[in-house]
């Protein structure tokens, strides 16, 4: 049995410990917001948080999260209240939307660690997340906007 928590809920699963976390999240837990894009940590579509660290779940064996806390896009906030989700709505960021879960999960760690990120911070933090539709300019604007919301409201 592999035990860990996902979005605050404890799960115990009978699964091959070498299975990538991504497929456990998607297939065993039915949380399909986390996406498969490359399977080799190239595109960032599968980004989740493990104890607060952004991780490419497509290359992380599920054994890595034993006893740890995993947060997926579904746990960022289901009611779209997270400042990043609000900013993403305001900037109308997504096109096809497939990469956006990963983009948001990376941006969440960026904002936590650097509440007022510079463009260079954004370049460093978001370069591991590919968007084929080309939403980068809007993602950049949305991150700055979310930072503004956090600064104004003092919450995250």
């Amino acid at each position: 049995m592999i035990g860990f928590s996902v979005n605050g809920k404890r799960v115990d699963l009978d699964v091959d410990p070498f299975t990538p976390l991504l497929w456990v999240i998607r297939e065993h837990l039915g949380l399909t917001g986390t996406k498969y894009g490359c399977g080799m940590a190239q595109c960032g579509a599968c980004t989740v948080h493990i104890d607060g660290t952004a991780v490419r779940s497509c290359v992380a064996p599920v054994s890595r999260v034993i006893g740890k806390a995993v947060t997926t896009i579904e746990g960022l906030s289901s009611d779209l209240s997270n400042p990043l989700q609000r900013a993403w709505l305001e900037e109308d960021v997504p096109q096809c939307g497939y990469c956006q879960s990963g983009q948001l999960m990376s941006a969440a760690v960026l904002l936590r660690d650097k509440p007022t990120p510079t463009d260079e911070d954004i370049d460093q933090a978001m370069t591991g997340n590919i968007c084929r539709c080309g939403t980068y300019p809007r993602i950049r604007r949305a991150i700055h906007r979310a930072a503004g919301l956090v600064a104004k409201e003092g919450t995250r």
Partner: peptide, 19 residues
């Protein structure tokens, strides 16, 4: 840095498969 730590992609062991 921030959302791109070494451990974002690198595990404590090599992963099987080229690249």
């Amino acid at each position: 840095v921030t959302s791109v730590k070494c451990s974002t992609c690198h595990q404590d062991h090599n992963l099987g498969g080229a690249h």
